[in-house]
Design a protein around this nucleic acid. Structure first.
Lengths: 112, 112
DNA sequence: CCGGATCCCAGACGATACTG
DNA sequence: CAGTATCGTCTGGGATCCGG
């Protein structure tokens, strides 16, 4: 789940490339598949589907298919998924606040 | 840094397998290389060295080599590194509290 | 004691094309 | 619209051995 707690239960969900972003996209309410693809710029359908399925398996969100033409599938955060929003915000806040320091530390290090 | 904030600045530090654990090992004071290897069960010397170098480059810790035989190298968290302790604790607390739920959600999902 | 050098692999991620 | 299928890539990390 989260690598900071030993041992990691695969697959690593938090800390992978997309899980956190997907949760952010869903935190204000349910969304359809195509409504997720837009803000998640660069994600391919395969990876989006994989991620959603895996998060559904972990109980972070629910998938509801409304049959018909055209198909309509809605994803919604579960209470468990919602409980992740705040920890994620904490991490993102740190990242936003400190990324400049990290970057300049890298520059300084690479100079030598 | 942290994948939840787009776009990710490689390499991904937080969320990789060892960074969070190394910070936890150093949060109560400086430690030598060999003192890190013990609690980080399973880590190979190569990976430990790589991780420490990379974190040093990012300004998360400092490396101080005391010359002599035998060599003695001390690693210590920088203020920037220390500032990560609390966000990390938040994530770990979530993981500890909710891992059972995730695991049982997986079991339920796999039954179908 | 503290690593560097080398080789290797699995699994995450992406590109592209196709379908009920 | 909401996915599958197939294939290729790339990198984090492990195994093992060697050196100052």
């Amino acid at each position: 789940m989260f690598a900071g707690c030993a041992p990691v239960t695969p697959p690593v969900r938090i800390g992978d490339k997309w899980t956190a972003k997907i949760i952010r996209c869903l935190q204000d309410g349910p969304r359809r598949y195509s409504e997720l693809k837009v803000p998640l710029t660069g994600i391919t359908p395969k990876v989006l589907t994989e991620s959603l399925r895996s998060m559904e398996r972990d109980g972070l969100l629910t998938r509801t298919a409304h049959p018909g033409i055209p198909p309509k599938v809605v994803y919604e955060l579960s209470p468990l998924g919602h409980s992740l929003v705040e920890p994620l915000d904490t991490m993102c806040a740190w990242s936003r606040a400190n990324l400049p320091k990290v970057l300049s530390a890298r520059d300084a290090y690479d100079l030598t």
